[in-house]
Amino acid sequence: MNNQVLFTHKDLVERSKLGDRKTQYKLYSLYVNAMFNVSVRMVKSKEDAEDILQESFIDAFKNLDSFRYESTFGSWLKRIVINKSINHLKLKRIPLIALEEHENWIPQQEEDIKEEDLDISSIKTAIKQLPEGYQTIINLYLIEGYDHVEIGEILGISTSTSKSQYHRAKKKLVGLMS
């Protein structure tokens, strides 16, 4: 990643570090919608996502001194939002379960889906039908772009568990799309 990207909004971040409330609000305004979308995809509740978002921004502004431009501000903030969303799910005790243990699991062969048959709304609908744990893995891997090592760290599971959960979630998703 080049330095220009890493230093996106550097002036706003630096002024925010000094406690400039107007600048903090500008920074908030730039990221609030994207971060809300990240959280609501994970927790499935607008109200919970709003709470998580507020907590995330409060934590981010309190800890701005720890932001060192090793990533973009948006990536750093996104990690905070995802961690808070995961913690929220853990508090609600939404487990990652093996596909075979899920009550709606029906063993089936993976079917090929033609790309032209797919549309975003049908994919979103199918993802919502997955068990909560699978939704979390799909969101982190496919939508948020984390790799299995990162997902393992975020969820407190092994890399191999992340991979197997993703494989099972994808298989179930393909079945729902057929």
Rank of each mutant, 00 (worst) to 15 (best):
residue 104 N to S: 10
residue 56 S to I: 04
residue 58 I to H: 06
residue 123 I to V: 15
residue 103 E to C: 02
residue 52 I to E: 04
residue 71 S to D: 00
residue 89 L to Q: 03
residue 120 I to P: 10
residue 85 S to R: 06
residue 105 W to H: 15
residue 110 E to G: 03
residue 102 H to R: 06
residue 91 L to A: 10
residue 92 K to E: 09
residue 111 E to F: 00
residue 95 P to H: 05
residue 55 E to Q: 13
residue 82 I to L: 05
residue 76 W to C: 07
residue 119 D to H: 10
residue 107 P to W: 01
residue 66 S to N: 13
residue 96 L to W: 03
residue 74 G to A: 15
residue 71 S to H: 05
residue 102 H to C: 10
residue 97 I to P: 02
residue 100 E to D: 08
residue 59 D to M: 12
residue 76 W to Y: 05
residue 101 E to G: 09
residue 123 I to H: 10
residue 69 Y to W: 10
residue 120 I to L: 15
residue 57 F to N: 13
residue 50 E to K: 11
residue 68 R to I: 12
residue 112 D to R: 05
residue 69 Y to V: 10
residue 71 S to G: 04
residue 52 I to N: 04
residue 69 Y to I: 10
residue 72 T to D: 04
residue 63 N to H: 14
residue 73 F to R: 07
residue 67 F to S: 13
residue 119 D to A: 05
residue 123 I to K: 15
residue 91 L to G: 13
residue 86 I to A: 02
residue 66 S to P: 08
residue 115 E to G: 05
residue 58 I to T: 12
residue 54 Q to S: 06
residue 82 I to N: 07
residue 54 Q to A: 05
residue 115 E to M: 02
residue 65 D to F: 10
residue 95 P to W: 00
residue 99 L to M: 07
residue 87 N to T: 08
residue 87 N to G: 11
residue 89 L to V: 01
residue 84 K to H: 09
residue 118 L to E: 02
residue 77 L to E: 01
residue 92 K to Y: 00
residue 110 E to Q: 14
residue 58 I to E: 09
residue 113 I to Q: 01
residue 109 Q to T: 06
residue 98 A to K: 14
residue 89 L to H: 00
residue 105 W to G: 08
residue 76 W to P: 10
residue 96 L to N: 01
residue 79 R to W: 00
residue 106 I to F: 03
residue 73 F to Y: 11
residue 106 I to W: 01
residue 87 N to E: 07
residue 63 N to L: 11
residue 69 Y to T: 09
residue 49 A to F: 02
residue 109 Q to Y: 00
residue 80 I to H: 06
residue 91 L to C: 00
residue 101 E to F: 07
residue 66 S to G: 09
residue 64 L to C: 12
residue 92 K to L: 06
residue 98 A to S: 15
residue 74 G to S: 13
residue 106 I to H: 06
residue 117 D to V: 03
residue 59 D to S: 14
residue 74 G to E: 13
residue 60 A to I: 09
residue 74 G to Y: 08
residue 102 H to L: 00
residue 86 I to L: 05
residue 66 S to I: 14
residue 61 F to G: 11
residue 105 W to T: 11
residue 90 K to L: 03
residue 117 D to H: 04
residue 92 K to T: 00
residue 91 L to F: 05
residue 51 D to W: 04
residue 101 E to T: 14
residue 112 D to Q: 02
residue 53 L to S: 01
residue 90 K to H: 04
residue 110 E to A: 13
residue 124 K to T: 11
residue 49 A to H: 05
residue 65 D to E: 14
residue 72 T to W: 03
residue 76 W to D: 08
residue 60 A to S: 14
residue 100 E to F: 00
residue 67 F to D: 15
residue 81 V to N: 08
residue 101 E to K: 11
residue 101 E to S: 15
residue 72 T to C: 08
residue 88 H to W: 07
residue 114 K to V: 04
residue 94 I to Q: 12
residue 117 D to M: 07
residue 50 E to S: 12
residue 88 H to R: 14
residue 119 D to T: 07
residue 109 Q to M: 07
residue 122 S to V: 10
residue 71 S to E: 08
residue 125 T to M: 15
residue 53 L to N: 00
residue 120 I to A: 15
residue 65 D to R: 12
residue 118 L to F: 03
residue 122 S to D: 08
residue 113 I to E: 08
residue 58 I to C: 10
residue 124 K to E: 15
residue 125 T to N: 13
residue 88 H to V: 04
residue 74 G to R: 11
